[in-house]
Design a protein around this nucleic acid. Sequence first.
RNA 1: GCCGGGAUGGCGGAAUCGGUAGACGCAGCGGAUUCAAAAUCCGCCGCUGGUAACAGUGUGGGGGUUCGAGUCCCCCUCCCGGCACCA
Length: 893
Amino acid sequence: MQEKYLPSDIERAAQQKWAASQAYRADEASDRPKYYCLSMFPYPSGKLHMGHVRNYTIGDVLARYHAMRGYNVMQPMGWDAFGLPAENAAIANNVPPAAWTYANIDHMRTQLQALGLAIDWSRELATCKPDYYRWEQWLFTRLFEKGVIYKKMASVNWDPVDQTVLANEQVIDGRGWRSGALVEKRDIPMYFFRITQYADELLTGLDTLPGWPERVKTMQANWIGRSVGVRFAFPYTLDGRDEKLWVFTTRADTIMGVTFCAVAAEHPLATRAAADNPALAAFIAECKQGSVAEADMATMEKKGMDTGLMVTHPLTGEEIPVWVGNYVLMSYGEGAVMAVPAHDERDFGFARKYGLSIRQVIDARESASKLQQAIADTRSNRALSAEEAEYAEEFAEHATEFTDRNWQEWYGSKAGVCINSGKYDGLSYTAAVDAIAADLSAKGLGEKKTQFRLRDWGISRQRYWGCPIPIIHCDACGDVPVPAEQLPVVLPEDVVPDGSGNPLNKCADFVNCVCPTCGGAARRETDTMDTFVESSWYYARYACPDYAGGMLDARADKWLPVDQYIGGIEHAILHLLYARFFHKLMRDEGLVSSDEPFANLLTQGMVVADTYYREDSSGKKTWFNPAEVELRDGAAFCKTDGQPVTVGGTEKMSKSKNNGVDPQALIDAYGADTARLFTLFAAPPEQSLEWSDAGVEGAHRFLKRLWKAVHDHLQAHGSVAACMHGNPGNLSDEAKTLRRQLHQTIQKVSDDIERRKQFNTAIAAVMELMNALGKLEGDDAVTRSLRQEVLEAAVAMLAPMVPHISETLYAELEPGAAMTWPAVDETALVQDEIELMLQVNGKLRGQIRVAATAAREAIEAVALASEAAQKYLQGQPPKKVVVVPGRLVNIVA
RNA sequence: GCCGGGAUGGCGGAAUCGGUAGACGCAGCGGAUUCAAAAUCCGCCGCUGGUAACAGUGUGGGGGUUCGAGUCCCCCUCCCGGCACCA
């Protein structure tokens, strides 16, 4: 055995061995239980970053662990290959996005292989290849025919200088990132997936996913946002016609407090009013500036303008003014809202700003005083219900006089009763909503309705580098889906975009086509699909990537659902919701039989790093990679020009902030095992991992110590053939303790990997075991045998994390043997005596030793007799003694 | 703004079900080895007071529940992620 640990040699050898034996090819014929382990596939941005290393290492640990446990494991890999960065690179370097993408894939595949991942490369796919996206186009045409996909107008960010649609990311402070022009909202026709039709199932389906983190399920549930309310109308007469202004509210109980209505700038009523009101037209034009991003809409100053139009309150008949509000979203609900300034904080602020009236219709004081009475009653006879208790807590402190000067927390609460509301006075929230909904319904002006916050998924992108939407526009036949036998609609790969709109529009060969229905001249759709579409079904295609006869074959049902999905928390909502939605679409097409795609989900935290930038006079920022920056005297400087750079925040490693750390240097210097060990050890998977070069050394040192321990053991004794299996009996106390620690460690590491999915503590436990082994003296057969047992188990336990060194060392320890997961010897875990902590009044004051089987009374007696107890009790009898079995004794003096 | 999460030594983190706060590692300090250095090995290492034994104090801030709170409840501050065209 080589004395020195030489990572590059052993890693190359191990990887060659795995490749030659096709060690990680998933077995289609096996009758062992399957384990489909999937890490989110990467966007081929150019080179691997630490986020990838972290993601794929975590997945690899779980895949390798389950393989050692006897599962038939499938761990595939592929490329989320369409997307915006390829077009940006094309503009910057004048290369076709296709060539750039394929070159990146080749480079990154090599990098991934250097990490030694147990991947079945025979299943590799790239979403930009026609044999992948043709099935996406096929499904699109099926869904189009079924009406699951439809076309409507929607707003996009428009750069008037570059004459192009911008992604939200490309809008910086309301301006185009390249042109600096003020961005406008523009309405264009787009195709939509009717995801709202599945909203209920997507929501209730969350309850069938115990293997998902609660926080992800909460985020999805809130995103879907099911709310029960009332949809109703304000009638009005305009231009001689009777019309209705529809709104939706979850607070129908406050309907008597409506003092105005607000509509979106794009609302037909606003457009109509602006026709003979130039000031309003100017205001609407102003509203159309800025980005369409919801975060921008929500944080901007709330502004409005009176349309001069009036609508009729459906219950009181009162005339209600209609305003245009820049905070009302056309894409959400009806594009119009009723405003109750007394009981909605945003309406309150709006009414105060524009001098609109505020009318209180809910009072919490009365209910609060009832509750105070109830609380008083509780002291004597009756207990409060949980609902009442909550009610009481909410109002006991807050319920005060209503004032229309300053907003107070309780104004927006549902826990009061109606006042100033005529026949509804005195009704609680539920009763009032029911009564009001019934009255509106009787007038034919509204009814109860369940609404979702979730909106239909617009997938049209005015970009070149994406999957072409398989639609042909014919003047005679309208929008015609491309017939299955004409698929795929192949994207030409030799095009170089120039940043001024979609270059496909200029490709006559692509655009000009024949209508499949009438045979006349027609135009092909040039919009491409949202790249989230490709990533919504790749997990299923991995089961049958070579199938040319359809989207999926029977193998998909064999492997699905994915047993373990691993990916960044930043995908908690969109990607995971779309993939769940797609799974149901494919199920309804008869392609899969399960309802959900991912049985267990691990959301890894982000790898974050410091950001550095310089800002030019126009406010445009140029970002510097941490590798290009050096820190001197608490300031940062660019290494190339020596000039200072501004230190930004610590943020998610990303291309846009250029703060990715190249893991290649790490692998070159220390080997893949060290890189893997460090990323696993530095933080638990779900937490964010702050990158730092320090600490890598420590991981590497541990591997060197491990290597040396095995080397010295074998050097001293040759390989020990007969390793103890089962309880060897005549161990010294010291050896017995070490052997107990070994089997406790096996127990802990198994639990950490399998249940807790926390690898930093698993590694720490093996480190502790190795530290303890180092202290074991002796050279007799029994000690040697124990040493062999510990080393074999330690190497095997580390194998999922550091596969190359483990493979090599295990072959030295047990030549020719297959490395399986070590078994726990229960007999080794037995302890005769245990140590308990002794507390007096909750403070640690000493320890006591008792028999492991000691009864509570015996433990109490030992505790009370102890020196520490005597010192603090000073002869007084204890008020109370708390015994926590196996842990501690607390004496209350 | 809304939704979700986080905050523990000089640093990354541990404490799994309310029960020894700081495991493991990094950095630092002291020592061994060496002609010397690197590497390696051994020891110390939250803060304050004390030679020490020990005592007090300590998990972002404020309050509460409990024999006992990093962990549960209420309020607050700051940081991170998502917000539908970054992926």
